[in-house]
């Protein structure tokens, strides 16, 4: 639809026309500003905790464990230089051999949701699957934050 609109505007004499082909689905999935009747509906991005601890594949579990506990968390997300989420380490893995790299104990490819997902829908799924937290990323896999069932419960 937008390529045709762009071509039509060009035919009408507009000289500088751009086509955002990924569209509002991409914009919303990145947690960027929206307007309209449904804009006030709570979204995952509204409660995602951006301060969730992160680490790299090569970090040692012992170092990560100290950092995570000091920050008051029991979970750490493994990201690369572009902040793309590669894995997750939860409490049992944090208590594993402290001398091994994170890569050896992480859970690879955790389930993620986009920031524009409706919070009530995700809360439902978390309840059904007895999930305590879900990773929130943009559509290109970059970390936005983590939602926790307790935080969701307080918002809804």
């Amino acid at each position: 639809m937008s390529p045709r609109a762009a071509s039509r505007l060009t035919s009408l004499g507009f000289r500088e026309v751009y086509d955002y082909v990924a569209g509002e689905a991409d914009w919303f999935a990145s947690g960027l500003a929206r307007e309209g009747r449904d804009a006030a509906i709570p979204r995952v991005g509204d409660v995602a905790r951006g301060d969730v601890p992160t680490c790299r594949l090569t970090d040692l579990v012992g170092d990560v464990q100290v950092r995570v506990r000091t920050a008051g968390w029991d979970i750490c997300l493994v990201v690369n230089d572009e902040c793309v989420v590669l894995g997750r380490i939860r409490a049992p893995a944090l208590a594993a051999d402290s001398t091994v790299p994170v890569e050896q104990v992480m859970e690879a490819g955790p389930t993620t949701v986009r920031p524009d997902a409706r919070l009530a829908d995700v809360a439902h799924r978390m309840h059904d699957k007895n999930t305590h937290s879900v990773v929130v990323t943009t559509s290109d896999g970059r970390l936005v934050g983590l939602i926790r069932r307790d935080d969701v419960g307080r918002t809804l």
Binding site: S2, A5, F14, E16, V17, G23, W27
Partner: peptide, 18 residues
């Protein structure tokens, strides 16, 4: 299209790759 200023860039979009 007269709602738009022809002298400024215009960005169009829809939902996604439709």
């Amino acid at each position: 299209a007269t709602r738009l200023d022809p002298n400024r860039p215009v960005i169009v979009y829809c939902w996604d790759y439709q």
